[in-house]
């Protein structure tokens, strides 16, 4: 069984680091990455993000197959990472250092 849906297999290289299950893990990963690492991940996923989401929308959210769930988790990492890349140009804003210490949980969203 493939780790990602076949037509997105080339994104497999990002899965180990970015296909994370929880918002907390994804945010810690964003915070501990360099700007060039964030940019590389962003550049790889962003051009295909709209297409990926359209593809994932063909499945019920609460019954995503494992490969599709991993793909969605990549996208959820992109949502967080994009703030660094598109808005702040730093991994975390220097005036907001404690976001990694918040207890955060978005699991009820599915």
């Amino acid at each position: 069984m493939p780790y990602l849906p076949e037509k997105y297999a080339d994104l497999e290289q990002f899965c180990a680091e970015w296909a994370l299950e929880t918002s907390q893990e994804r945010h810690l990963k964003r915070a501990s990455s360099s700007m060039s690492e964030l940019q590389a991940f962003y550049d790889a996923i962003t051009p295909r993000a709209a297409e990926i989401l359209t593809y994932l929308d063909t499945f019920p959210l609460d019954a995503l197959p494992a490969a599709e769930r991993r793909l969605l988790n990549l996208c959820l990492s992109l949502a967080d990472v994009s703030l660094s890349v598109e808005k702040y140009r730093v991994p975390l804003l220097p005036d907001a250092p404690y976001s990694t210490k918040f207890r955060a949980d978005t699991s009820a969203l599915g």
């Binding site: 918002s23 929308d57 703030l83």
Partner: peptide
């Protein structure tokens, strides 16, 4: 849908950055 899930995560992450300030 996954799209909606994505949008909500974006909003939550943004709110977290705002709250951290």
């Amino acid at each position: 849908t996954a799209s909606e899930r994505f949008s909500r995560e974006y909003g939550f992450c943004h709110l977290r950055d705002v709250a951290a300030e």
